[in-house]
Design a protein around this nucleic acid. Structure first.
Length: 117
DNA sequence: TTTCTAACA
DNA sequence: TGTTAGAA
């Protein structure tokens, strides 16, 4: 199918579909005219990518685990569990850092408002 | 009309 | 991610 059809079938913009290809998440074949041609499994592949993206994974990680994804993307082969835990760890670290930032900013505001009014 | 690439917002 | 320009 053509990119426009895949877009209509998945609700993902044509622009994004081209971007996924650039990130090596999708690998459509080319017609003699240079147009992208997607196979019948493309809609499922896009759903998987979306599921992983919605989990906050960067495209770089998605590229690594995509071959191990099954179904609609909510289940992956156990062999990539470690990679995913690593991501979860990093995510938690970022959250912790943001909490510190929040406390710091709140403190500044509290002191400021107490002094000014 | 649709798609392509590349670059800008 | 959306938009846009010029070409096929």
């Amino acid at each position: 199918m053509k990119i426009g059809e895949l877009s209509a079938a998945t609700g993902v913009s044509v622009r994004l579909l081209r971007y996924y290809e650039e990130q090596e998440l999708l690998t459509p074949v080319r017609t003699p005219g240079g147009h992208r041609s997607y196979g019948p499994e493309a809609p499922l592949a896009v759903r998987r990518i979306r599921a992983l993206l919605d989990a906050g994974l960067p495209t770089r990680v998605i590229r690594e685990v995509l071959p191990c994804v099954e179904g609609d993307g909510l289940f992956v082969h156990p062999c990539v569990s470690d990679r995913l835990r690593e991501q979860l760890r990093g995510m938690e670290e970022r959250i912790a850092e943001l909490e510190e930032n929040r406390a710091g900013l709140a403190a500044i505001l509290a002191v400021t408002e107490a002094a000014v009014g």
